[in-house]
Amino acid sequence: MSLYDDTVLVLKGYEDQPELRQAYLDHLAVHADGLWKSCGAGHITASALVVDPEGGRVLLTLHRKMRMWLQMGGHCEPDDTTLMAAALREATEESGIEGLALLPGGPVRLDRHHTPCAWHLDVQYAALAPPGAVEAISDESLDLRWFPYDTVAEVADDSVVHLLTATRARL
C-alpha cells in the first residue's frame, strides 16, 4: 500500500472534524502530489504531541522557521510507509527521544494552517514518552522544553492548546 492510499484510509477512518476531514480528502483527490512539499497548493503533514502523562507535561519545540512553540512534526518523506510512521519519525527526530509510542486510535486532531512554504494540512497524533525520557534538540529547533499542561496556553497558539485538550481526553 502506498503512503497516499494509507493517508486516504486514515482520513476516511477519522470520525471527528467532518468538514476539515473532507477538505483533506478533496485536496488529495485533486492533487496526486498532495502529500509532498512540492505541492504549492498545500500538502499533508504529520505531527505528534509528545506527552508525559505521569509528569503531567508536554514537550514543545521552539520552531526555527516559525518562531513558535509547537508540537513535533513536518513534511512526509518518500521513505515513509504510513502517515503514522511519518508522525513517529518526525516526533523522534525533533525530540531526540527514542522509544516514543503513538497513542492508539489514530489521529487526535486535524489542523490546517498557513506556513511560509504553503498550506499545511496537518494530521496530528500524540506520542507517549517512555519513563525517564531525555530530549535532545534538533537542527530544526531553537529550543526544546517540557511544559506542565496548565502552562501550554501561555506559550503556544490555539492549535497546540486544542491538540493538548484532545490528547488529554484520550489518555
Rank of each mutant, 00 (worst) to 15 (best):
L62W: 13
T61G: 14
G56C: 09
I44C: 01
G56P: 11
A41S: 04
A48T: 05
G74V: 11
R57P: 06
T45K: 06
D79S: 12
L70W: 09
M72V: 13
Q71A: 15
Q71D: 15
K37E: 10
H43Q: 01
H63M: 05
S47L: 05
M66Y: 14
G55P: 15
K65T: 15
H43C: 06
P53L: 04
M72D: 11
D52Y: 09
T45P: 05
A48G: 02
R57N: 07
V51G: 09
W36K: 01
I44A: 03
L62H: 14
S38L: 01
A41F: 03
T45N: 04
R64S: 14
T61A: 11
L62N: 09
C39A: 02
K65G: 08
R67P: 02
M66Q: 12
W36C: 00
E77N: 12
P53D: 01
R67L: 15
G42C: 06
L60W: 10
L59R: 03
R64Q: 14
G40E: 08
G73T: 06
K37T: 00
R67Q: 13
A46K: 03
T81G: 15
M66E: 12
K65P: 07
V51A: 08
S38I: 00
S38G: 12
M68L: 15
Q71R: 13
R67V: 11
P78K: 06
K37Y: 04
E77W: 08
D79E: 15
G55I: 09
P53S: 02
M72Y: 13
K37W: 00
G73H: 12
A46Y: 00
W36Q: 03
K37L: 04
L70Q: 13
D80R: 09
V51F: 11
P78N: 06
D80T: 07
L59D: 08
G42R: 02
V51E: 02
G40A: 07
C39Y: 00
D79A: 12
L60Q: 05
T61S: 11
D79L: 06
V58E: 07
R57Q: 11
W36P: 01
W69T: 11
E77Y: 12
G74D: 05
P53W: 05
R64L: 15
M72N: 12
